[in-house]
Computed example of a mutant assay.
Amino acid sequence: MNKVTRLQAVSHPLRLRILFALDVQEEARTSDLAAELGVAANKVSYHLSLMEKGGIIRKRTGEDARETWWSVITENLDMKEGEGSDSLAEDSRAATLASLEYLRSLVPALEPGESEERPNQSIMVTNAYLTTEQVKELADDLAALLHRARDLSDQNREQGNGRLYAVGAQLLPARAEQG
């Protein structure tokens, strides 16, 4: 399974919503996903089958043969360096933009002055000139931060605490400057 195939498997807003829902729930039935997302079950089923063909989710038959459970194959979402082709950078940017658009849809608009409380949201973006070694170091730091967020999420879910937040990180080469 190459990167482009995996990226195509999530290159639709509904598939991203399904992926995020499965990631939080760890495993869910088609009907549960349809109810949570407010989408017809046959539509969710169609997109689940495309995601399965793309190798990013797996299905398991429940005790009742009509019951299908789905879960994310997290190791197949890890985009390892050196996989793919020259067009991969563009595909990665497209997937990143699609992910960001979906994440933005989950976050209510920030209206300055609307509340005296500081909103529980942060959006941080920067461009930076980095060496290959610095990129590797930052990637390790980001991976550790996301791992910490996942651990906290698991603890809170077990205890019935917290709210759902979208947490993500991207470290991609910028598009070459056009002359």
Rank of each mutant, 00 (worst) to 15 (best):
L37C: 13
G38W: 06
G38I: 09
V39P: 04
A40T: 02
A40C: 06
A40K: 13
A40P: 11
A41D: 09
A41L: 04
N42R: 13
N42G: 05
N42P: 08
K43L: 11
V44N: 04
V44W: 08
V44F: 04
V44S: 02
S45L: 06
H47C: 12
L48P: 12
S49Q: 12
L50R: 14
M51T: 07
M51K: 05
E52K: 06
K53S: 13
K53Q: 15
G54E: 02
G54L: 02
G55W: 00
G55R: 03
G55L: 00
R58T: 08
R58E: 03
K59Q: 11
R60D: 01
T61G: 09
G62N: 01
G62T: 05
G62M: 07
E63F: 10
D64W: 01
R66K: 11
E67V: 12
T68C: 03
W70A: 05
I73T: 10
I73E: 05
E75D: 14
E75P: 02
N76L: 08
N76D: 05
L77T: 08
D78G: 02
M79T: 08
M79Q: 03
M79Y: 06
E81G: 07
E83W: 05
E83C: 00
E83I: 01
G84R: 01
G84H: 05
G84Q: 05
S85K: 12
S85Y: 04
D86V: 12
D86P: 10
S87N: 00
S87H: 02
L88D: 15
L88S: 14
L88E: 10
A89V: 13
A89R: 14
A89I: 13
A89S: 11
S92R: 13
S92L: 15
S92G: 05
R93Y: 14
R93F: 12
R93S: 12
R93T: 12
A94L: 15
T96W: 03
T96H: 14
L97K: 15
L97G: 10
L97C: 14
S99D: 03
Y102K: 06
L103A: 11
L103G: 01
R104V: 06
R104K: 14
S105D: 15
